[in-house]
Design a protein around this nucleic acid. Sequence first.
DNA 1: CAAAAACTTGACTAGTTGGTCAAAATGCAG
DNA 2: CTGCATTTTGACCAACTAGTCAAGTTTTTG
Lengths: 217, 217
Amino acid sequence: MTRATKKKAGENPEKTTRIQEINRRLILDAALDAFSTYGFRGTTIDQIADKAGMSKPNLLYYFPRKQNIYVTLLEETLEEWLAPLAEIDPEGDPIEQLRKYITLKIRMSESHPEASRLFANEVLHGAPAISEFLSKHLKPLVDEKAAIIRRWVGEGKLAPVDPYHLIFMIWATTQHYADFDVQVRAIMGNQVGRPGFNEQTAQAVLSIILNGIRPRL
Amino acid sequence: MTRATKKKAGENPEKTTRIQEINRRLILDAALDAFSTYGFRGTTIDQIADKAGMSKPNLLYYFPRKQNIYVTLLEETLEEWLAPLAEIDPEGDPIEQLRKYITLKIRMSESHPEASRLFANEVLHGAPAISEFLSKHLKPLVDEKAAIIRRWVGEGKLAPVDPYHLIFMIWATTQHYADFDVQVRAIMGNQVGRPGFNEQTAQAVLSIILNGIRPRL
DNA sequence: CAAAAACTTGACTAGTTGGTCAAAATGCAG
DNA sequence: CTGCATTTTGACCAACTAGTCAAGTTTTTG
């Protein structure tokens, strides 16, 4: 026996057991909560293990490094996060396509604010773990959609507007409600939780942006 | 001698020496750099002391706790950060006033991106150190300006728009370029540093938002 | 149902980090 | 120039935390 390596979950390639599936999920859910609130450095493995209801060594059996959990989470999140952008249809009506996109983005910020904050935190700190993703996946997709928007502008279907800055504005505005939630609450107080607040937000954002880019005569 | 307290900088009330002034500044500058990049937890006292060119105990002579440096920085930054909002003139032309406000905010994000990131990081993590500031200072100011914008809308000088969401949109968009700088660079590449880029950004943001809120017939 | 594989954990280690302390060096008022 | 206050620092400590390990328990499989 020359093998001296320790056994880790998923050692057996291609094989994930039922227990592995359950526990990985428990860990990732707990970690998303913690990382999105306290950041990478601010979160301890013990915290995550506690929240996931298992011992620290057990957690480390599934993810040998803290960094692994973090990166896995980011990867899981990013694809989902980008999906709405990919759905913009070059053949559709420009205003309608952008309305749909903005609406989807707002809904995502409402339903997955932790994901938004996880991502925001990573980018804010220089995106050390995902800089490759940004250049290899995000940039090409944005370039593609920017070209579509530019064409729409050329055809007079949108007011003259830089497509990149338009996309940034949509990102910034929609994610603001997740990332700066505390600030929004401090200012708008009890309104935030109230029924209809989300619709009101979507309405306000859509109104300003869509009117801002509607073709002018 | 019953006094047993240790001596700390500024022990003598009302008296700051020349050396104190210099060193506090050195520390705060170094700390802004570090905190805005790595966050509170991600920054070590040693790092700050190194950057400030002094020993750790010496740094602690001026700021007995890491937290003190952080809070001092935030306080210093926040007032400055809010100043442009306070300048909105209720008697001025609405579109012009908002144009000026947006322009000032963009310029601040360009000239003090670290301050923007420091603040973003704090809010993102639940604003534990400044929740009081948000409710005691920020909210009243925003309420005041929101009332002005609401009046303008009532007078037909602006399209019907929720003033709070408008303010959030301006914040989100302008600060995006500082907070998500890495992402902006990943997508727009070498354009970012180029002369004229900042003007182009300001132009794009102003164009969309101002046209989005211009009164419609 | 027995053996192997997968899973779980208490106890531990090594490295990091916020903060202390006492003594030395420097600055400064008279 | 002298003596007191201010400033500076090397050495140190206690708390925390990522990750290890060996020994046990549970689950799966032939």
